[in-house]
Amino acid sequence: MTKTEWTLYIIQAANGHLYTGITTDLERRLKQHQNHTGGARFFHTSDAEKVVYQEQHPDRSSASRREAAIKKLSRQQKLNLIGNPSDHV
């Protein structure tokens, strides 16, 4: 049995807000968010623009724990994690 790798991601919306999630297929998930086909309601008010951060995890459990930790961060802490805060203001 093949183990599925999970990706934690942060997507920047057109209004500058950041969305954090997990998936096994980042390209498919970004398209879902952009096309409003199974994506998060978060993007109903502002379109998903681009993935600004991602990290790989060996299983869903570790990806979910990391997602929860990132969601608790302040906006500034998330921008610091992404790496180029001046590009995302």
Rank of each mutant, 00 (worst) to 15 (best):
M1N: 06
M1T: 09
T2A: 12
E5R: 07
W6S: 05
T7C: 11
L8A: 02
L8M: 01
Y9K: 12
Y9V: 06
Y9A: 05
I11H: 04
A13C: 00
A14V: 05
N15A: 06
G16W: 06
H17D: 08
L18F: 09
Y19V: 02
Y19H: 10
Y19C: 02
I22S: 01
I22R: 10
I22V: 08
T23R: 09
D25E: 02
L26T: 00
L26R: 06
E27D: 12
E27C: 11
R29M: 11
R29W: 00
L30F: 06
K31L: 14
K31C: 09
Q32Y: 04
Q32C: 04
Q32N: 05
Q32R: 03
H33R: 02
Q34Y: 05
Q34F: 05
Q34N: 00
N35E: 10
H36Y: 11
H36V: 02
T37G: 05
T37Q: 11
T37C: 04
T37A: 07
G38W: 01
G38I: 07
A40K: 12
F42L: 06
F42G: 00
F43Q: 03
H44F: 10
H44P: 03
T45E: 12
D47L: 12
D47P: 02
D47W: 07
V51S: 06
V51C: 10
V51K: 03
V52Y: 09
V52M: 04
V52L: 03
Q54R: 14
H57P: 00
H57L: 12
P58Q: 14
P58T: 07
D59N: 15
S61R: 15
S62K: 15
S62N: 10
A63Q: 04
S64H: 11
R66G: 11
E67T: 01
E67P: 01
A68W: 10
A69H: 08
A69S: 14
A69M: 11
I70N: 01
K71I: 12
K72A: 13
S74G: 05
S74H: 00
S74Q: 08
S74A: 08
R75L: 08
Q76R: 14
Q76L: 14
Q76V: 14
Q76D: 11
Q77G: 10
Q77D: 14
Q77I: 11
Q77H: 13
Q77Y: 02
L79W: 02
N80P: 03
L81D: 04
L81H: 02
I82L: 08
G83A: 13
G83E: 06
N84E: 09
S86G: 08
S86V: 13
D87G: 04
D87Q: 15
D87I: 07
H88C: 03
V89K: 14
